[in-house]
Design a protein around this nucleic acid. Structure first.
Length: 229
DNA sequence: TCATTAAGTATGC
DNA sequence: GCATACTTAATGA
């Protein structure tokens, strides 16, 4: 594989304070991997041998309940570190990471983590910020599931995806990776049938337009109204 | 209000 | 043409 350019990392928060030489150093210790849509980068319970950064694509972080159904905990966007709770404390991964779209991932052995946090300025603090944001987001979702009606939860989930990955189209703003009704039900604690009915109703109301695995939000303000924030 | 069952259509490799 | 994605109606907790 060809050498990666320093510019790939230079803009990203964990590395923003670093010079070219340091970024070169970090890149030279990384392995690059491409994953097809739907592939697992690591699996819940596996030995946490590596930590990762998503260069391109999108990931779902998934936990499987004892009952066997899966819930989508959060999504990872390009430029974000993941599989890092492992590098901090745990010896196994607490969740499974599945690619939502074809993805490029940088990977480092976990034993480098200590050195990264002590050696590279800003790396540790930015990582804590990321973890804090994710924890906050998970808590928001938990609160929604406990207190909000299904329609509001689905609205919030779609808004979250759009905020994280939205791309403009002529019709509106589109979720930047493939999503199924089933995926949305796994984020909101409902069934794919209810999600399907909800989206159909919104489509009639002109709030969204959707085709298989693609959702375009045509009236974002109305979705915001629906979830009541 | 929503899950479940069931029975269908649409879509894309 | 088959698996997967999606839709809709009916029923009942």
């Amino acid at each position: 594989m060809a050498k990666l350019d320093e510019s790939l990392l230079s803009g990203l928060p964990p590395f923003s304070l670093l010079g070219r030489a340091q970024i070169r150093e970090i890149l030279d210790q990384a392995r690059t991997q491409r994953f097809d849509e739907g592939a697992q980068v690591f699996c819940e319970g596996m030995d946490a041998t590596h930590f990762h950064l998503l260069l391109d694509g999108y990931l779902r972080v998934v936990r499987t309940t004892p009952g066997g159904d899966q819930i989508i905990v959060l999504h990872i966007s390009p430029g974000q570190l993941f599989g890092i709770a492992a590098a901090l404390h745990r010896d196994t991964y607490p969740a499974t990471a599945v690619t939502a779209a074809e993805s490029i991932v940088l990977t480092w052995p976990s034993h480098l983590w200590e050195g990264f946090t002590s050696k590279y300025d800003g790396f540790a603090t930015e990582t804590y910020k990321t973890l804090g944001r994710r924890l906050g987001q998970i808590q928001d979702t938990m609160t929604e599931i406990a207190t909000q009606a299904v329609e509001q939860r689905v609205a919030a989930a779609i808004l979250r995806m759009v905020n994280q990955s939205g791309r403009k189209t002529d019709a509106g703003i589109e979720v930047g990776f493939p999503v199924t009704r089933q995926n949305i039900s796994d984020m909101t604690g409902t069934t794919l049938h209810t999600v399907s009915r909800t989206l159909s109703a919104w489509e009639k109301d002109g709030i969204v337009r959707s085709t298989r695995k693609h959702i375009v939000v045509t009236a974002p303000h109305r979705l915001v109204q629906l979830c009541g924030h």
